[in-house]
Simulated assay, not measured.
Amino acid sequence: MDPTADGAEHLPGSDDTALTTGAVARRLGVSPTTLRSWDRRYGIGPQVRGTGRHRRWSPRDVAVLENMCRLTSQGVPPAEAARAARAGADGAPAPERPATSGSRAAGALPLGDVRQECRGLARAAVRLDAPAVEDLLTAAVEEHGLVVAWQEVMVPTLHAVGRKWASSGDRYVEVEHLLSWHVSTALRRCTRPAVPYGGLAPGPVLLACVPGEQHTLPLEALHAVLCQLGVPVRMFGAAVPAEALTAAVRRLGPSAVVLWAQARSGASPALARHVAGAEWGMKGARRQPQVVLGGPGWAGRSAPGMLRPPSLQEALRLLAGTGVSPGPGPV
């Protein structure tokens, strides 16, 4: 099968407008498994079947699916959404869920100008369609590489979900949790086995959140790419107590310690200086780590002698001593 200009795939010998299930799934941001399930359970399937078991989706079929996706993303139960989507295709107006006061429809996410993959990922997350979220994250990493997939697909979608959650009270917290879980899973799937450290300089990079900080996904992304680059790294994750971190510094003799703070309340320059002051080595040849500050919590904080890279690429340049191409392909 040959890809068309819009990335869709057509079945050989079929009408030019008939799309394969895979092409429709990519266009709508759902998984092929979800489309087959909707077809089997609710009759939301192609009107024309190809030879064998192939499905051929006409423009009318795709329009029905688009209505199904829109309604389910607004919180309509799948069975009800299917009836409404079919009715809309037959000429009856499909019901709309009311928009929140002064805003867009209840299920829409404020994405702005982003890659098309973000829109599909956001729709799948709002529907709580875990198979589609998994498929879309995997495809983004395979197509763009881990750095670009993180910065241009995962992060904008996570931010949009976070903004929607913040503006809707406690609504959409389940969407944020599901998306975060699958982003974490995708990052760990990309992570190569830890590189052994034999005690020779430079030491490993230590990655830790400040005390009380639970947001680990940016550190997980940094950890995955450093492992891919063959850099020795130790991941400590969320809410590391200051004394535990300084004890680890003295034991491992790291080349750098990355301190992540999402919130300003946890970004303490005194803590950073405390970690930077940890020493190891023989008397007369004592060494100290380079502290690297990460996260929006450090904005506007004065921390002389410490680095604050503005992007993942710059952090990688500092920590791995190499430039990382943001182009397609594995990092």
Rank of each mutant, 00 (worst) to 15 (best):
D135H: 14
P95T: 09
V114M: 03
A82W: 00
P78N: 08
E80I: 12
A18L: 15
V62T: 08
R55A: 12
T72D: 00
D90R: 14
N67L: 15
D61M: 01
V24S: 04
T20D: 00
G29K: 10
R97A: 15
P78I: 02
V24W: 00
M68P: 04
L35G: 00
A132V: 04
G112C: 13
Q74D: 14
V126G: 06
R36C: 10
R115D: 11
R36W: 05
L11H: 13
W57S: 03
V24E: 01
D15C: 10
L121H: 05
W38G: 00
A140I: 04
V126T: 14
A105E: 15
L128E: 06
G29Q: 10
S37Q: 08
V126W: 02
A140L: 07
V114E: 08
G29E: 11
A108K: 11
L28N: 03
L11A: 15
A124K: 09
E143W: 06
C69S: 11
L19K: 08
P77C: 02
T34W: 04
R83I: 14
L121D: 05
R27A: 12
A25F: 03
L35S: 02
A79L: 11
A106M: 14
T21I: 05
P131A: 08
P12R: 00
I44H: 02
A63D: 15
R115W: 09
